[in-house]
Amino acid sequence: MENMLIISGSPHVHTSRTVRSCMWHVVAALVPALGCALFYFGLGALAVVSVSVLSCMAFECLIERYMLGRRPQLSNGSAILTGLLLALNLPSNLPAWIVVIGALVAIGIGKMSFGGLGCNIFNPALVGRVFLLLSFPAQMTSWPLPLADRLEYVDAATGATLLSRIKMGEVSADDIDLVDNALGLVGGSLGEVGSIALLLGMIYLLATRIISWHIPLSIMGTVALFALCIGSNVGVELLSGGLLLGAIFMATDYVTSPMCHKGMVVYGVMIGLITMVIRHWGAYPEGVSFAILLMNGFTPLINRYIKPRKFGERRMAK
Protein backbone atom coordinates (compact mmCIF):
# COMPACT_ATOMS: atom_id res chain seq x y z
CA MET A 1 0.00 0.00 0.00
CA GLU A 2 2.72 2.47 1.02
CA ASN A 3 4.13 2.77 -2.49
CA MET A 4 0.76 4.02 -3.63
CA LEU A 5 0.42 7.00 -1.30
CA ILE A 6 -0.66 10.16 -3.07
CA ILE A 7 1.94 12.92 -3.01
CA SER A 8 0.81 16.49 -3.52
CA GLY A 9 1.68 19.92 -2.27
CA SER A 10 -0.24 21.50 0.59
CA PRO A 11 -3.00 22.41 1.29
CA HIS A 12 -4.59 19.01 1.61
CA VAL A 13 -8.13 20.26 2.30
CA HIS A 14 -10.18 22.42 -0.01
CA THR A 15 -13.39 24.34 -0.07
CA SER A 16 -16.43 22.50 -1.32
CA ARG A 17 -17.19 25.42 -3.62
CA THR A 18 -16.63 24.75 -7.31
CA VAL A 19 -17.09 26.75 -10.50
CA ARG A 20 -20.23 24.73 -11.06
CA SER A 21 -21.67 25.49 -7.63
CA CYS A 22 -20.93 29.21 -8.08
CA MET A 23 -22.87 29.23 -11.34
CA TRP A 24 -25.79 27.31 -9.89
CA HIS A 25 -25.96 29.64 -6.90
CA VAL A 26 -26.38 32.54 -9.31
CA VAL A 27 -29.05 30.62 -11.22
CA ALA A 28 -30.81 30.00 -7.90
CA ALA A 29 -30.60 33.70 -7.09
CA LEU A 30 -32.32 34.44 -10.40
CA VAL A 31 -35.28 32.20 -9.59
CA PRO A 32 -37.40 34.92 -7.93
CA ALA A 33 -36.78 37.28 -10.84
CA LEU A 34 -37.63 34.52 -13.31
CA GLY A 35 -40.81 33.73 -11.42
CA CYS A 36 -41.71 37.39 -11.56
CA ALA A 37 -41.09 37.51 -15.29
CA LEU A 38 -43.24 34.46 -15.91
CA PHE A 39 -46.00 35.90 -13.76
CA TYR A 40 -46.00 39.29 -15.48
CA PHE A 41 -45.40 38.24 -19.06
CA GLY A 42 -46.72 34.67 -19.18
CA LEU A 43 -46.14 32.75 -22.37
CA GLY A 44 -43.81 35.33 -23.93
CA ALA A 45 -41.40 35.13 -21.01
CA LEU A 46 -41.43 31.35 -21.11
CA ALA A 47 -40.67 31.35 -24.83
CA VAL A 48 -37.86 33.90 -24.66
CA VAL A 49 -36.20 32.27 -21.63
CA SER A 50 -36.29 28.76 -23.04
CA VAL A 51 -35.13 29.77 -26.52
CA SER A 52 -32.30 31.84 -25.06
CA VAL A 53 -31.08 29.17 -22.61
CA LEU A 54 -31.34 26.30 -25.09
CA SER A 55 -29.61 28.15 -27.91
CA CYS A 56 -26.80 29.37 -25.63
CA MET A 57 -26.22 25.78 -24.53
CA ALA A 58 -26.36 24.50 -28.09
CA PHE A 59 -23.93 27.13 -29.41
CA GLU A 60 -21.48 26.55 -26.58
CA CYS A 61 -21.63 22.81 -27.14
CA LEU A 62 -21.18 23.05 -30.92
CA ILE A 63 -18.37 25.61 -30.79
CA GLU A 64 -16.44 23.73 -28.12
CA ARG A 65 -16.75 20.41 -29.90
CA TYR A 66 -16.32 21.36 -33.55
CA MET A 67 -14.35 24.60 -33.54
CA LEU A 68 -12.17 24.35 -30.44
CA GLY A 69 -12.01 20.57 -30.42
CA ARG A 70 -12.55 20.14 -26.68
CA ARG A 71 -15.08 18.29 -24.65
CA PRO A 72 -18.07 20.56 -23.99
CA GLN A 73 -18.56 21.32 -20.29
CA LEU A 74 -22.20 22.27 -20.18
CA SER A 75 -22.58 20.96 -16.64
CA ASN A 76 -20.57 23.86 -15.23
CA GLY A 77 -23.70 25.90 -15.83
CA SER A 78 -22.03 28.94 -17.33
CA ALA A 79 -23.86 28.65 -20.68
CA ILE A 80 -27.18 28.25 -18.91
CA LEU A 81 -26.44 31.32 -16.83
CA THR A 82 -25.50 33.37 -19.88
CA GLY A 83 -28.75 32.26 -21.55
CA LEU A 84 -30.80 33.24 -18.51
CA LEU A 85 -29.15 36.63 -18.15
CA LEU A 86 -29.54 37.34 -21.85
CA ALA A 87 -33.25 36.46 -21.69
CA LEU A 88 -33.77 38.71 -18.69
CA ASN A 89 -32.38 41.60 -20.72
CA LEU A 90 -34.84 41.11 -23.58
CA PRO A 91 -38.48 42.09 -24.08
CA SER A 92 -40.88 39.18 -23.78
CA ASN A 93 -42.29 39.62 -27.27
CA LEU A 94 -38.97 39.30 -29.07
CA PRO A 95 -39.30 36.78 -31.93
CA ALA A 96 -37.41 33.54 -31.36
CA TRP A 97 -35.07 34.01 -34.33
CA ILE A 98 -33.80 37.27 -32.93
CA VAL A 99 -33.23 35.62 -29.55
CA VAL A 100 -31.20 32.90 -31.31
CA ILE A 101 -29.04 35.54 -33.00
CA GLY A 102 -28.50 37.18 -29.62
CA ALA A 103 -27.42 33.85 -28.14
CA LEU A 104 -25.01 33.25 -31.02
CA VAL A 105 -23.40 36.64 -30.55
CA ALA A 106 -23.31 36.27 -26.77
CA ILE A 107 -21.70 32.81 -26.75
CA GLY A 108 -19.84 32.88 -30.06
CA ILE A 109 -18.41 36.39 -30.07
CA GLY A 110 -18.80 37.41 -26.44
CA LYS A 111 -17.31 34.28 -24.92
CA MET A 112 -15.89 31.63 -27.21
CA SER A 113 -13.92 33.89 -29.52
CA PHE A 114 -11.81 34.86 -26.51
CA GLY A 115 -11.18 31.26 -25.54
CA GLY A 116 -14.22 30.30 -23.50
CA LEU A 117 -14.90 30.27 -19.78
CA GLY A 118 -12.74 32.68 -17.86
CA CYS A 119 -11.10 34.32 -20.87
CA ASN A 120 -13.70 36.78 -22.13
CA ILE A 121 -13.25 40.50 -21.62
CA PHE A 122 -16.89 41.53 -21.95
CA ASN A 123 -19.95 40.12 -20.26
CA PRO A 124 -21.31 37.70 -22.90
CA ALA A 125 -24.98 38.29 -22.11
CA LEU A 126 -24.53 42.05 -22.45
CA VAL A 127 -22.59 41.67 -25.68
CA GLY A 128 -25.59 39.75 -27.02
CA ARG A 129 -28.08 42.27 -25.73
CA VAL A 130 -26.26 45.35 -27.01
CA PHE A 131 -25.77 43.69 -30.39
CA LEU A 132 -29.52 43.14 -30.60
CA LEU A 133 -30.28 46.65 -29.36
CA LEU A 134 -28.16 48.16 -32.12
CA SER A 135 -29.33 45.74 -34.82
CA PHE A 136 -33.03 45.52 -34.03
CA PRO A 137 -33.81 48.83 -32.33
CA ALA A 138 -37.53 48.65 -33.02
CA GLN A 139 -38.09 45.16 -31.63
CA MET A 140 -35.73 45.79 -28.74
CA THR A 141 -37.45 48.90 -27.46
CA SER A 142 -41.10 47.89 -27.59
CA TRP A 143 -41.87 46.48 -24.22
CA PRO A 144 -44.96 44.36 -23.53
CA LEU A 145 -47.12 45.64 -20.73
CA PRO A 146 -47.00 43.50 -17.61
CA LEU A 147 -50.07 41.43 -16.80
CA ALA A 148 -51.73 42.50 -20.07
CA ASP A 149 -51.59 39.70 -22.61
CA ARG A 150 -50.10 36.84 -20.77
CA LEU A 151 -51.20 34.23 -23.29
CA GLU A 152 -49.74 36.12 -26.26
CA TYR A 153 -46.12 35.91 -27.37
CA VAL A 154 -45.05 38.23 -30.23
CA ASP A 155 -48.38 40.02 -30.45
CA ALA A 156 -48.59 41.19 -26.87
CA ALA A 157 -49.64 44.80 -26.29
CA THR A 158 -46.58 47.01 -25.86
CA GLY A 159 -45.55 50.35 -24.45
CA ALA A 160 -42.36 52.26 -23.83
CA THR A 161 -40.37 51.91 -20.62
CA LEU A 162 -40.69 54.39 -17.85
CA LEU A 163 -37.29 55.99 -18.43
CA SER A 164 -37.95 56.57 -22.13
CA ARG A 165 -41.35 58.05 -21.34
CA ILE A 166 -39.71 60.39 -18.88
CA LYS A 167 -37.04 61.23 -21.42
CA MET A 168 -39.68 61.96 -24.07
CA GLY A 169 -41.40 64.19 -21.59
CA GLU A 170 -44.57 62.06 -21.57
CA VAL A 171 -44.62 61.76 -17.82
CA SER A 172 -42.85 63.63 -15.10
CA ALA A 173 -40.78 61.65 -12.65
CA ASP A 174 -42.82 62.97 -9.75
CA ASP A 175 -46.06 61.39 -10.96
CA ILE A 176 -44.69 57.90 -10.79
CA ASP A 177 -45.97 55.47 -8.24
CA LEU A 178 -42.86 53.96 -6.72
CA VAL A 179 -44.78 51.01 -5.33
CA ASP A 180 -45.97 50.04 -8.79
CA ASN A 181 -42.45 50.50 -10.00
CA ALA A 182 -41.00 48.27 -7.29
CA LEU A 183 -43.61 45.62 -7.95
CA GLY A 184 -42.81 45.67 -11.65
CA LEU A 185 -46.11 47.10 -12.88
CA VAL A 186 -44.37 49.12 -15.56
CA GLY A 187 -43.14 48.02 -18.95
CA GLY A 188 -39.66 46.62 -19.29
CA SER A 189 -37.50 43.65 -20.12
CA LEU A 190 -38.04 40.33 -18.40
CA GLY A 191 -35.60 41.10 -15.64
CA GLU A 192 -36.36 44.77 -15.17
CA VAL A 193 -39.69 44.13 -13.56
CA GLY A 194 -39.87 42.91 -10.00
CA SER A 195 -37.25 44.92 -8.13
CA ILE A 196 -38.09 43.08 -4.95
CA ALA A 197 -37.36 39.76 -6.63
CA LEU A 198 -33.98 41.07 -7.80
CA LEU A 199 -33.17 42.34 -4.33
CA LEU A 200 -34.06 38.93 -2.91
CA GLY A 201 -31.56 37.49 -5.36
CA MET A 202 -28.95 39.93 -4.12
CA ILE A 203 -29.53 38.97 -0.51
CA TYR A 204 -29.09 35.33 -1.49
CA LEU A 205 -25.85 36.04 -3.35
CA LEU A 206 -24.47 38.08 -0.47
CA ALA A 207 -25.51 35.49 2.11
CA THR A 208 -23.87 32.65 0.20
CA ARG A 209 -20.85 34.88 -0.32
CA ILE A 210 -20.95 34.38 -4.09
CA ILE A 211 -20.57 38.13 -4.49
CA SER A 212 -19.38 40.81 -2.12
CA TRP A 213 -21.27 44.04 -1.53
CA HIS A 214 -18.67 46.20 -3.22
CA ILE A 215 -19.92 46.22 -6.81
CA PRO A 216 -23.71 46.37 -6.39
CA LEU A 217 -23.68 48.87 -3.54
CA SER A 218 -21.14 51.18 -5.16
CA ILE A 219 -23.22 51.26 -8.35
CA MET A 220 -26.46 51.90 -6.50
CA GLY A 221 -24.85 54.40 -4.15
CA THR A 222 -23.33 56.37 -7.02
CA VAL A 223 -26.61 56.43 -8.95
CA ALA A 224 -28.52 57.55 -5.88
CA LEU A 225 -26.02 60.29 -5.02
CA PHE A 226 -25.87 61.48 -8.61
CA ALA A 227 -29.67 61.60 -8.80
CA LEU A 228 -29.79 63.61 -5.58
CA CYS A 229 -27.23 66.08 -6.93
CA ILE A 230 -29.05 66.74 -10.18
CA GLY A 231 -32.46 66.72 -8.50
CA SER A 232 -33.76 63.59 -10.21
CA ASN A 233 -36.07 61.08 -8.54
CA VAL A 234 -33.77 58.69 -6.65
CA GLY A 235 -36.36 55.92 -6.44
CA VAL A 236 -37.08 55.94 -10.14
CA GLU A 237 -33.42 56.00 -11.05
CA LEU A 238 -32.69 53.04 -8.81
CA LEU A 239 -35.70 50.89 -9.55
CA SER A 240 -35.99 51.20 -13.29
CA GLY A 241 -34.01 50.78 -16.45
CA GLY A 242 -32.51 47.46 -15.46
CA LEU A 243 -30.24 49.11 -12.93
CA LEU A 244 -30.82 46.46 -10.29
CA LEU A 245 -30.44 43.63 -12.77
CA GLY A 246 -27.22 45.19 -14.00
CA ALA A 247 -25.80 46.05 -10.61
CA ILE A 248 -26.63 42.73 -8.99
CA PHE A 249 -26.23 40.18 -11.76
CA MET A 250 -24.41 41.65 -14.75
CA ALA A 251 -21.70 43.88 -13.30
CA THR A 252 -20.78 41.26 -10.69
CA ASP A 253 -19.88 38.68 -13.33
CA TYR A 254 -16.60 37.24 -12.00
CA VAL A 255 -14.73 37.06 -15.26
CA THR A 256 -15.27 40.63 -16.35
CA SER A 257 -15.09 42.50 -13.04
CA PRO A 258 -11.98 43.51 -11.05
CA MET A 259 -10.25 41.10 -8.70
CA CYS A 260 -9.81 43.13 -5.52
CA HIS A 261 -12.29 45.04 -3.40
CA LYS A 262 -10.76 48.45 -4.02
CA GLY A 263 -10.89 47.85 -7.76
CA MET A 264 -14.50 46.69 -7.47
CA VAL A 265 -15.51 49.96 -5.83
CA VAL A 266 -13.81 52.03 -8.54
CA TYR A 267 -15.49 49.87 -11.17
CA GLY A 268 -18.90 50.22 -9.50
CA VAL A 269 -18.65 53.97 -9.07
CA MET A 270 -17.65 54.41 -12.70
CA ILE A 271 -20.55 52.24 -13.87
CA GLY A 272 -22.92 54.36 -11.81
CA LEU A 273 -21.52 57.60 -13.24
CA ILE A 274 -21.56 56.46 -16.86
CA THR A 275 -25.08 55.12 -16.47
CA MET A 276 -26.35 58.45 -15.19
CA VAL A 277 -24.50 60.43 -17.87
CA ILE A 278 -26.02 58.28 -20.61
CA ARG A 279 -29.46 58.42 -19.07
CA HIS A 280 -29.52 62.18 -18.81
CA TRP A 281 -27.34 63.42 -21.63
CA GLY A 282 -27.06 60.48 -24.03
CA ALA A 283 -29.14 59.30 -26.93
CA TYR A 284 -30.51 56.26 -25.12
CA PRO A 285 -33.01 56.44 -22.27
CA GLU A 286 -31.01 53.97 -20.28
CA GLY A 287 -27.34 53.15 -20.13
CA VAL A 288 -26.63 50.37 -17.67
CA SER A 289 -25.58 47.88 -20.35
CA PHE A 290 -23.27 50.34 -22.07
CA ALA A 291 -21.78 51.45 -18.78
CA ILE A 292 -21.04 47.88 -17.71
CA LEU A 293 -19.54 46.96 -21.08
CA LEU A 294 -17.36 50.05 -21.05
CA MET A 295 -16.08 49.27 -17.59
CA ASN A 296 -15.56 45.61 -18.56
CA GLY A 297 -13.06 47.01 -21.03
CA PHE A 298 -11.34 48.94 -18.25
CA THR A 299 -11.21 45.98 -15.87
CA PRO A 300 -7.72 44.78 -16.94
CA LEU A 301 -6.46 48.31 -16.39
CA ILE A 302 -8.10 48.50 -12.98
CA ASN A 303 -6.53 45.15 -12.07
CA ARG A 304 -3.15 46.43 -13.13
CA TYR A 305 -3.17 49.69 -11.24
CA ILE A 306 -5.46 49.16 -8.28
CA LYS A 307 -4.03 46.51 -6.04
CA PRO A 308 -4.67 45.41 -2.49
CA ARG A 309 -2.22 46.86 0.01
CA LYS A 310 0.43 44.25 0.66
CA PHE A 311 1.02 43.24 4.27
CA GLY A 312 4.15 44.86 5.60
CA GLU A 313 4.36 47.56 2.94
CA ARG A 314 2.60 50.28 4.90
CA ARG A 315 5.64 52.37 5.72
CA MET A 316 7.59 51.54 2.61
CA ALA A 317 8.86 54.78 1.10
CA LYS A 318 8.62 54.72 -2.65
Binding site: T18, C22, G118, S212, Y254, V255, S257, M259, C260, P308
Partner: peptide
Protein backbone atom coordinates in the same frame (compact mmCIF):
# COMPACT_ATOMS: atom_id res chain seq x y z
CA UNK B 1 -10.79 24.39 -14.44
CA UNK B 2 -9.84 27.66 -16.08
CA UNK B 3 -9.55 30.62 -13.69
CA UNK B 4 -12.90 32.41 -13.59
CA UNK B 5 -11.30 35.46 -12.02
CA UNK B 6 -13.64 35.40 -9.04
CA UNK B 7 -11.04 37.07 -6.82
CA UNK B 8 -11.53 34.60 -3.95
CA UNK B 9 -7.76 34.06 -3.72
CA UNK B 10 -7.11 37.80 -3.51
CA UNK B 11 -9.71 38.09 -0.77
CA UNK B 12 -8.23 35.14 1.14
CA UNK B 13 -4.55 36.08 0.98
CA UNK B 14 -3.40 37.21 4.46
Amino acid sequence: MPCIRCGACVEACP
